[in-house]
Nucleic acid binder design. Structure first.
Length: 821
DNA sequence: GCCTACGGTTTTTTT
DNA sequence: AACCGTAGGC
């Protein structure tokens, strides 16, 4: 990491309270301020790459070293588990093992921890399930159907989105119903579904992602004595990526940093708590440190409120603000491009990143004819960098939408480039994994009807819709849970075969329960999760069904389940005290993107959103096209284009040394090929910063129908590795009307640079340049040469030039970087 | 109840 | 191109 790193102090701060001098070493003045300031509220405005993690970890270390805080009094919140893990590790390097007792976690994990402890205060049990968005969608889908709401234009997706938004604003079904226009049937229906959804969650003893935050806030507000426990405990609250907090998260922070007013009698049953204004607080609020950068706010779509950071000073009067503008990550070229792009957002505090490491390499641009062509460019450059000694792990490829990864993967596989997709289709999203987890949930949280229904007929047991409904009705009539109804199969009035199937499932679940949650009350051994899961998968017949199946994919499913079993073993090893609940919590909240370490040796592929907070020596930003970045859907939304620009800015600023921007002229979407336009953001970058290997102009000027020439040379399955080859080698001349041909991309043998063709996109305009055969010209890259002839008309005039050293080339006069001598 | 075929729909980003 | 839901045959 290029961040300033003082000498590491490893191990215990053995010699008692120590000055924090060593923590400040290598920091610039504002960074020092940020570490040493002591007060109620501190806002660190940290531009990309300005060393904020260093500052945050040293600030924590300094609090501990100076004995201003115990580890247990510190709560540090990040957005991803990965960021949390990284922070913990770095704090540990500074202060040693005492880092273990700090809460360094995401909003969601911290809330789960609190909720598991306090759930019984308000009608949940500690075994509650966490519904991911797929689970909640399944539930909402059922409700939408029940209410026949699709007739009013309510789709599961729109309902889910709205509910999520409302929860992020701390609105519940009741408060929504109060202010909604109930004369509109669609609104009324939505309000009913919202209320039903919430009831269903409560009944299932489950929280969705948004509830984890919102319900914690409710808990604190409804039970001040509970909140006080945490207020007393956490004396220093630090929040990273503050610009991406939503209202609920903001409220949570507020609740946590409130002064402790007094020893209100606990469990004041129904009584009002009255706090007299004159009464001095028993304990002042915890100190709050937030770190953020409004230019990197990219989560407005899920409720992040940029005002949380822009109005921090108003929210916390007397707050100190520290500005970090010096960048320790990227070269000046990269920063200049990023500054130029973000500068197009009006309505922002001007802030310019700078560095003293020098300009560095130019940004490389490339326009492919198709997404595969573009991908091939990426693969070739990756290999070229590798040969120059750059590790695969130090390269990353970004894209706007997950669907773009397909073409990249195809080509990378073909080119034998090792890669890893970060946070793509998640392991835990696979159907068989979700089934297995549903089995576990059915055991730990029998109230979770959704989970029990999910496994009811997996594997096939002959239990269909009709039987499922019968069970549900029986449960409702008897006033028991769906799960308990399974124990009375004989009372359901179904056929003997089905009866037997249900009883068998019930028995298997009961047996697993005995293993993982022994009725004797003793604590289950660490291996219980593994043992229980294995039992469930085997005795339920789930694995057998997959093994017998003829579907070739089912083999892979068995392997995935084996891996899940391995995960439980690993979990038991790492968490000797870990229970089945801890395991389920972890898999619900930990995403694949979090395990960064085993990306070693591979190129990382990820969306631009996932890229936030990461950095790489070389970064490829792909699909820099209109309708992709900025994405078409965001164009119409207020603030959409600006958020997209910030997203692009985030992508650019991930690069340390080399930045590649690429796009494709055509892109297959919906199975159809459509023509793509260069992104407007491309033109916001000063053109002298980009060195185009192949510019949009090059590709455009060939006239529509020839663009498959390149692909035609690349047969689908079978070019051997024999590389190089083919037509590409010797430049100019042989390509009919084609302009400077693309170099062969499969296995570049020689220097790619010799094919370089710098034509800035849409910036240069040589329309007025008159050239005639015999004229001497100078080209930015190819040097001097003589014009052989000029063909074409108007904007499409092409000069055929014989360069003194670079050979024959065809150049589109309008945009070629040439001048007459 | 299960399987297959067909047609409509789809792709924004994530804890 | 891939996924989902429905319809119709078994």
């Amino acid at each position: 990491m290029p961040e300033p790193q003082g000498p590491m102090i490893v191990g215990e701060p053995s010699s008692g309270a120590r000055a924090d001098d060593d923590l400040l070493r290598g920091l610039n003045p504002p960074q020092r301020d940020a570490v040493t300031y002591r007060g109620q509220a501190l806002l660190i405005v940290a531009g990309a790459g300005s060393g904020k993690t260093s500052v945050l970890t040293r600030r924590i270390a300094s609090l501990l070293r100076n004995r201003e805080a115990w580890p247990s009094q510190i709560l540090a919140i990040t957005f991803t588990n990965k960021a949390a893990g990284e922070m913990r590790e770095r704090v540990q390097q500074l202060v040693g093992d005492s880092a273990q007792s700090m809460w360094i976690s995401t909003f969601h994990s911290a809330c789960v921890r609190i909720l598991r402890r306090e759930a019984q205060q308000f009608g949940f049990t500690k075994s509650f399930t966490i519904y991911d968005s797929g689970d909640s969608r399944a539930l909402i889908k059922r409700l939408v159907k029940e209410h026949e709401a699709d007739a009013f234009g309510l789709t599961p997706a729109s309902v889910q989105g709205r509910i999520s938004k409302l929860k992020n604003e701390l609105a519940d079904a009741e408060s929504f119903a109060r202010q909604a226009n109930m004369s509109d049937p669609a609104e009324r229906l939505f309000a009913e579904i919202f209320a039903d959804y919430q009831r269903a969650l409560q009944k299932a003893n489950a929280f969705d992602f948004d509830d984890l935050i919102a319900q914690t806030v409710y808990l604190f507000r409804a039970f001040p004595h509970v909140a006080d426990v945490y207020r007393r405990r956490f004396r220093h609250v630090l929040v990273d990526e503050y610009q991406d907090t939503n209202h609920a998260q903001y409220a949570l922070i507020h609740e946590l940093t409130r002064p402790v007013v007094g020893d209100a009698e606990p469990y004041a049953a129904g009584g009002m708590m009255i706090f007299e204004a004159s009464e001095a607080p028993e304990l002042e609020g915890a100190s709050l440190t937030v770190v953020g950068d409004s230019d990197q706010s990219i989560y407005a779509f899920r409720g992040a409120d940029i005002r949380n950071i822009t109005e921090f000073e108003r929210d916390f009067p007397g707050a100190k603000v520290v500005l970090l503008e010096q960048n320790y990550r990227s070269t000046q070229n990269i920063l200049s491009a990023a500054n130029a792009v973000i500068g197009h957002n009006f309505d922002r505090k001007d802030k310019k990143l700078w560095t003293d490491v020098g300009d560095g390499d130019p940004i490389i641009g490339f326009t492919g004819y198709s997404q595969h062509d573009e991908a091939q460019f990426v693969a070739d450059e990756v290999e070229a960098l590798r040969r120059k000694g750059v590790d695969y792990a130090q390269m990353a490829v970004f894209y706007r939408t997950n669907s773009q990864s397909r073409a990249l993967e195809e080509i990378l596989i073909r080119s034998a480039v090792p890669y890893k997709i970060m946070g793509g289709t998640k392991f835990y999203d696979r159907a068989e994994i979700k089934d297995a987890l549903a089995y576990l949930v059915a055991v730990t949280n029998p109230a979770d009807e959704l989970a029990v229904r999910r496994i009811l007929n997996k594997p096939r047991r002959g239990i269909g819709d009709v039987t499922e409904t019968t069970i549900a009705r029986y449960a409702a009539d008897e006033g028991i849970t769906f799960r308990d109804a399974l124990a009375n199969a004989s009372a359901l009035g179904v056929g003997p075969k089905i009866q037997h199937a249900i009883s068998h499932l019930d028995a298997v679940l009961a047996e697993a329960t005995e293993i993982m949650l022994p009725s004797s009350g003793e604590v289950a051994p660490p291996a219980a999760v593994t043992e229980g899961l294995t039992l469930l998968l085997n005795k339920s017949g789930y694995l057998d069904a997959l093994r017998i199946s003829k579907d070739p994919q089912d083999e892979a499913r068995v392997e995935n389940l084996d891996e899940l079993v391995a995960v439980t073993r690993e979990f038991a090893r790492n968490n000797p005290e870990g229970t089945i609940l801890d395991f389920l919590t972890e898999v619900a909240l930990v995403s694949d993107a979090d395990d960064l370490d085993d990306a070693s040796g591979s190129v990382s592929l990820m969306t631009m959103h996932t890229a936030k907070g990461l950095e790489y020596d070389a970064v490829f930003v792909t699909g820099v096209e209109e309708d992709l970045i900025p994405h078409r859907i965001s164009a119409g939304e207020p603030g959409g284009p600006q958020e997209e620009r910030r997203l692009f800015y985030v992508a650019l600023t991930r690069a340390r040394k080399r930045l590649y921007l690429s796009l494709a002229m055509t892109r297959a979407q919906f199975g159809e090929v459509s023509v793509a336009m260069p992104s407007r953001f491309l033109q916001e970058i000063p053109h002298e910063l980009i060195d185009w290997r192949q510019s949009p102009g090059d590709v455009n000027s060939r006239g529509g129908s020839r663009s498959r020439a390149l692909n035609a040379r690349r047969p689908g399955g079978g070019f051997g590795g024999s590389g190089g080859g083919g037509a590409g080698g010797s430049g100019g001349g042989r390509y009919g009307d084609d302009l400077v041909p693309l170099p062969r991309r499969e296995k570049p043998v020689g220097s790619i640079e010799k094919f370089a063709n710098r034509i800035p996109a849409k910036v240069r305009d040589n329309s007025d340049l008159e050239l005639a055969p015999g004229d001497r010209i100078r080209h930015d890259d190819f040097g001097d040469g003589r014009v052989d002839m000029v063909t074409g008309e108007g904007a499409k005039r092409v000069a055929h030039v014989r360069f003194d050293s670079a050979g024959a080339k065809k150049l589109l006069i309008k945009i070629a970087p040439i001048s007459k001598l």
